[in-house]
C-alpha cells in the first residue's frame, strides 16, 4: 500500500520526485500551480470545485464553460392565472389538528396519503 502523501508538501516536490515535467501539477481551473503551493491548498481547491461543479460545467481543457444565464419566471407568476379567488382565500387559512389525534397516526396517515396519491 502506497504511503499517503503529506499535505504540507509543495507542488514542485512531487514533480521532481515522480520525474514529471515542470507544470504537470495544475490548479482546478487548469492553470499551472505555483511550485510553492501546498498540496493541502490544492486539495481544498479541488474539493471546493467538486461541491459547486455540475457535470458538463468545464470543457476538455479543464477551462470553465461559459453558460448563458436564463432568467426563470417566479413560480407564483407562472401559475397566477390559474388560481381562483376561493383557492387564494383557502390558502390563507390554517389547518388545525384535532387535540385527540396522536402525532404518530398523523405521520403515518400523511405518508400513506402521499403514497396512494400516485395510484
Amino acid at each position: 500500500m502506497a504511503r499517503k502523501v503529506r499535505s504540507d508538501i509543495k507542488a514542485g516536490n512531487p514533480e521532481k520526485k515522480s520525474g514529471l515535467e515542470a507544470g504537470a501539477v495544475r490548479n482546478p481551473d487548469g492553470s499551472d500551480a505555483r511550485s510553492d503551493k501546498k498540496l493541502k491548498t490544492l486539495r481544498e481547491d479541488f474539493a471546493k470545485t467538486q461541491r459547486t461543479k455540475t457535470p458538463g460545467q468545464s470543457d476538455l481543457n479543464g477551462k470553465p464553460k461559459k453558460t448563458v444565464a436564463v432568467k426563470k419566471a417566479p413560480p407564483a407568476m407562472a401559475s397566477k392565472s390559474v388560481i381562483t379567488v376561493d383557492q387564494l382565500i383557502a390558502s390563507r387559512r390554517r389547518i388545525k389538528s384535532h387535540p385527540k389525534t396522536p402525532s404518530r397516526l398523523a405521520r403515518s396517515v400523511s405518508s400513506a396519503l402521499q403514497k396512494s396519491a400516485g395510484k
Binding site: 389547518i95 385527540k100 389525534t101 397516526l105 398523523a106 403515518s108 396519503l113 395510484k119
Partner: peptide, 24 residues
Amino acid sequence: TMHWERNALTFIEYVTSVNEWLKL
C-alpha cells in the same frame, strides 16, 4: 394503503385523514 376499511373508519381516523389531506 393503510389497510383500513373505508366504511368502518373511526372518528379520529377520519378527522386525521381529512386533516392530513388538507395539508397536502
